[in-house]
């Protein structure tokens, strides 16, 4: 499963994505011929959160949980939840076009529906700018839960209000 810890992915295009790449085919010759018939499956990709910065390093703490945690709204500026159906494979996070930060492997019996709560702070410090140091902090908590619509728990920063209004 994705490993809890503190990560430092690079944001780009005002976004950090979660990508899950399938495990490489055991027999590439068989897979190559199969690709003629059905086309190639793209890696799973979803926007984990939008950032204030245009691009640059961010700090991201990931906690994998069994059940929803108590919200800690006073510690963060913007908090929202989304759902994602995660496939098995190698998970990683980072902005579009960037080299990604590996998060761990999702096994077959760990794939399925998850709820993801994102808490953010610092998104108004350097909006739409390129940064060389960490100015934004994120907490990403995920737990198994059936899919439900996005939910905004808190939107304090201007960037936070903008992105919260556009959650898919």
């Amino acid at each position: 499963m994705i490993i809890s810890g503190v990560y430092a992915p690079r944001a780009a295009e005002q976004a950090v994505e979660l990508v899950v790449e399938p495990v490489p085919a055991a027999d590439p010759v068989v897979a190559l011929q199969a690709s003629r018939a059905g086309g190639t499956q793209q890696p799973f990709r979803t926007t984990l959160f939008h950032t204030g910065i245009s691009s640059g390093p961010i700090s991201m703490t990931v906690n994998v949980l069994d059940a929803p945690p108590e919200p800690a709204l006073e510690e963060w500026e913007d908090v929202h939840e989304v759902s994602a159906s995660l496939p098995a494979g190698r998970a990683a996070a980072g902005g579009p076009m960037e080299e990604l930060t590996a998060l761990g492997a999702i096994e077959d019996d760990e794939s399925g529906d998850y709820r993801i709560r994102v808490s953010a702070a610092g998104r108004d410090r350097a909006p739409d700018l390129v940064t060389a140091t960490v100015v934004e902090h994120y907490l990403v908590q995920l737990w198994p839960e059936s899919v439900s619509p996005p939910r905004v728990l808190s939107a304090v920063s201007e960037q936070g209000k903008y992105w919260a209004a556009r959650l898919a």
Partner: peptide, 19 residues
């Protein structure tokens, strides 16, 4: 529009650079 700008960059990667 900021949302359009971000999405355009994401699609450049997911529809062209990667595939």
């Amino acid at each position: 529009d900021a949302n359009t700008n971000s999405a355009a960059g994401s699609v450049l990667n997911s529809a062209l650079f990667v595939p």
